[in-house]
Nucleic acid binder design. Structure first.
Lengths: 213, 213
DNA sequence: GTTGGTTGGACAGTAATGCTATCCAACACA
DNA sequence: TGTGTTGGATAGCATTACTGTCCAACCAAC
């Protein structure tokens, strides 16, 4: 498959594909001559993943490259590879000042993790992210307690344990495993967010809507 | 309160505050002379909300303005105001080609909404968003069925009905009501997303981590 | 009354991000 | 022998969210 066909099948313009190649998101095709390269199904698949992460997952290109670098690093074991990829999917929190508010928020996060007996790396970005959200909620005047967070933790745990984790083929080839992991994290993350907004609209409408029985 | 104090209390630089004023995110202060304006607690509160939506909610400035315009439009009833604000919080889907894939995806969304007996406007942006995600999941090779979506719908409905909707003071002043609504949608949306990633990491670690009992 | 700092308003500039556009020589295929 | 495509390189562009500079008008302190 040449680049034009790759473009036609994926719907991605050729200059954009070249850009992804430059940026290392897409592996180079197999060179057949100085000005010819051959692309295969793997490239098409990778290209679709990139577009999914960009358009649906709204991940920056730099994060996508981190994910891909983790996959392509053969030195990493599956566990490390998944961890690296997973962390790269995290939006990330810019550095912030140390303050008692932050310390308190971090303690709440630690407590939540302990309550649910979760096994989380100390440096997991989601810890800081959650702490940031708690701090922000405080400055907004609402003061979240652990009891406000547990319903979300329970819901998340149930979803992950009963529906998501079994979809990941841990014994398949590396690339298949990460891809499933990424899809589970990003795509179903958006599914959940969107569906939650539907549920909110519906509940809000039931309470407030002008009577139309 | 003058602009410098507003900046000091909020931690937002003065040029940025000026920018928000220009963009209509922040209402003008009360002019006391040609080169003096007075700001109050409402401004500080609004400023914190803007930062929360930007930093935690990752909403574009244009969307924040839509939310604020809805609040400031006195012609709108509370129901309409909440709806407009809620829709502005949606990331939005760029226009796409009509195709059987999209039709099928939309039908699946309609079916889900019907199954849960949700009351959703035909033009709700979350419909198209969910359809987009379904289409994308298809191109990625996983083929989501209604049964794959229902666990998320059940979880979302439970969260919204038992924990979120009661936090919104529907009989309070408009501004208080929308603010609570926005916080519920955006901030707790992020809480859920982040906590879900924690749960994923933990489950993944339990299955894959090198044994460290 | 002078002086020094602050304010609002206007406008230009900037950094990051995700593309797009153009050019070119080297092919491949008819 | 021509026609078109390719890879590689480089430059340009649109958007977003600020940031920087300038200035006359002020207010408050000395």
């Amino acid at each position: 498959m040449r680049i034009s066909q790759l473009s036609a099948e994926s719907g991605v313009p050729i200059p954009t594909i070249k850009y992804y190649l430059r940026e290392g998101l897409l592996p180079q095709g197999e060179q057949t001559s100085a000005t010819r390269a051959e692309y295969g199904q793997a490239h098409l698949r990778r290209l679709r993943l990139i577009r999914a992460l960009l358009e649906v997952g709204r991940l920056p290109v730099a994060s996508i490259r981190k994910v891909i670098d983790a996959v392509d690093d053969e030195n990493l074991g599956v566990h490390q590879m998944l961890g690296t990829a997973h962390y790269a999917l995290s939006p990330g929190v810019e550095p912030h000042e140390e303050s008692p508010d932050w310390q308190e928020a971090r303690e709440m996060v630690d407590q939540l993790i302990a309550d649910y007996d979760w096994k989380i790396e100390p440096k997991a970005p989601a810890r800081e992210e959650l702490a940031q959200t708690i701090v922000t909620l405080r400055t907004l005047g609402t003061d979240p307690t652990l009891a406000d967070l547990t319903p979300y933790a329970t819901a998340a745990q149930t979803l992950v344990q009963t529906h998501e984790i079994h979809k990941i083929p841990f014994d398949a080839p590396r690339e298949t495993t990460v891809e499933a992991h990424i899809i589970g994290t990003v795509m179903y993350g958006r599914v959940l967010d969107t569906i939650r907004r539907l549920a909110q609209e519906s509940e809000s409408a039931r309470i407030l809507a002008p009577q139309t029985p």
